[in-house]
Design a protein around this nucleic acid. Sequence first.
DNA 1: ATAGGGTTAG
Length: 712
Amino acid sequence: MVLECAAQPLAGSGTAAAGVAPVQQQVSPATNSSGNTCELVYSRPGSSGSSGRTPVLQAAPRRPTAAPATVAGQPGADPRLVRLTQQLVARAGKPADMRVLLAGQSLEAADVRRLLTYLDRQGAADVALDAFHAMKALPQFDMDDPVLRTKLIKMHSRRPKDTAAALALYDEMVADGVAPDAVCYNITLGTAGLGHHWGRVLSILGDMQAAGVQWDAFTCSALLSACQACGQWEQALEWFRQAQAVPGLQLNVVHYTTLMSCLQKAGQWEQSMRVFKEMEGQGIVPDVVAHNAAIAACAKGGEWEKAWAVFLAMKQAGLRPSTVSYNALISACERCGQADRALEVFASMQRQQVAPNTVTYNTAISACAKAGLYARAQALHAEMQAAGVPDDVFTLTALITACERIGHWQGAEQHFLEFQQRGIQPNTVVFNRLISALGRGGQWEQALAAFHAMQQPGAEQQQRQPEGGRRAAGGGSGRASQECRADSSNSSSSSSSSSSNSSSSSSSSSSNSSSSGSKVDPPFPSSQPAAAAAAAAAAVAAPPRREASAAAPAPAGQKQRARRRGARGSSSDSDSDGPEPVVYPPSSTARPDRITYGSLIAALERGGQWERALAVFEDMLAQGIQPNGYIFTSLINACEKGGQWETAVKLFKAMQQQDIPLDSMAMVARKALYAFPSLIKNMPAPLLDAARATVDTGRAARQWIEKKRDDS
DNA sequence: ATAGGGTTAG
């Protein structure tokens, strides 16, 4: 309601998508510099932010499909270069063949430039690179044109993983004595930033200054973008002030917006808002994108009312909020736990005929999830699919979170499997949410199974052996995944790999544990390493429940999983031994992090599995992952439940040797004060004071709440 | 051959 009261002409009808600039820097190489798309080469179905979808509104296709833009179809294309382009592409990955082909050619620098452009349109940056080197080795080509060099660098600057090649081209250029001009420096600076090569940003800027090339507006823009990518907000402020002092350099709305975004991403949302106001003070009129940055800053600061105010101000200024504007505002509401507001904004967006995209739905679903509105979250997901807006891992994360919030672990599992069947690979965050949801549902066995599935190499990765070898050498991770295979053979999974692995698992576990002990400082003072290793091996071992299902024969694969899920969902009467545990398919992409271990340990703590919790803890240390206060708290609680106060004391001592922030320590100490008064003598005085303070604070809070209750 | 905005976490 409120959102629309600012008089707003019903904006040019069906062009809902027009204002929706898909941001996605470096996204798909599909979009080239001239805005043409080489969809045939690179189209990525999943790349979201797709502005083109106007699901709710019109069904009409946007444009009457023009013939796919091939190079040959371009007006004015040089047929000779077109042919050469195709011949080079046909020799992709064969630089020697390229050289043979090119040996019979002779091209002016301008023609080489054009050739590179054609290759770029084909999405063949790698071919261009090989062709470039082939030509450089041939005497008839003059490759010292800085524009040509720059173009080649630019071709490798779109995806972060290509940026190393781009920077190598810059180095090669310098080594060849070809002097970069301002444009080349600007592009290379931007490339280094995109690839998070902060050191290179600084060195290239040094080159530029040494060459006496002045900053221009693009230099400043590239530097600010680099700061954003590398999290260097203080340097961004510094350079911004420096640029303000450069004569003839007028900072514009793009500069201000980039700086705002940099600050906001670094957690400096108040500074970001200050920059927004400074921009207005300088007489620079903020556009939609600048407003979006301001809304995002408020969102990060947890100030949804401020975000709302900026949104309204934008409308008052006669600007039409874009999809991103709405997304930012919905996010602000989501972060503040204002699910109703978030849904209100979402509804308003649809009334205003602004097309929601993947991010919109994800954020709205997440808002519902946090509020425990699982049915609403599901409805939004269904609507999303009906509208043809692709869902992704963020959607899955939100749905699992929604299940977790209401204690519906079965739902979490179902969403996980359903997404995976549709080819959406779970990432670490998804696994973390799943493990947490299972743990909160009391399903520690399944949480452990999910953890193991996470570490198993997925289908594509199993072919690439070297990586697995590297990982196994690292320590406990290899052990855990081998254990997993061993126990999944019980429950029926893979047929061939189990026999060989089950025998090796015990020996590998002990060797891994001992190697890990020397590698990482053991914060948990395992005075008897052998005993600790044995405990670890025992505790990570197969959940007992799985053995019940050994009877099931088992081809691994999609059909089987679907069948299992069906059988499970249909009723609880499945066969003889009660519900069959779901087998999580191995994952390729996800690696456990601190949150994974924390969630798993919490799950085991809830299940009263203090030994397993300790074993997982050991595994975590072996991975080189530092524990935090949350994890120590879970472990100490687990020991409390198990009556293991001596272990708790050890953990507490270990915790003191770690770099745990003092407030976390105080939290644990506070718990310890209640649970293990005998710990008091082990606590250093300041910590004890802190613990008592938190106890007092809690007491004060309770008194305050009770007083309020009495008042009302 | 050159720049900006929005989403997930115990």
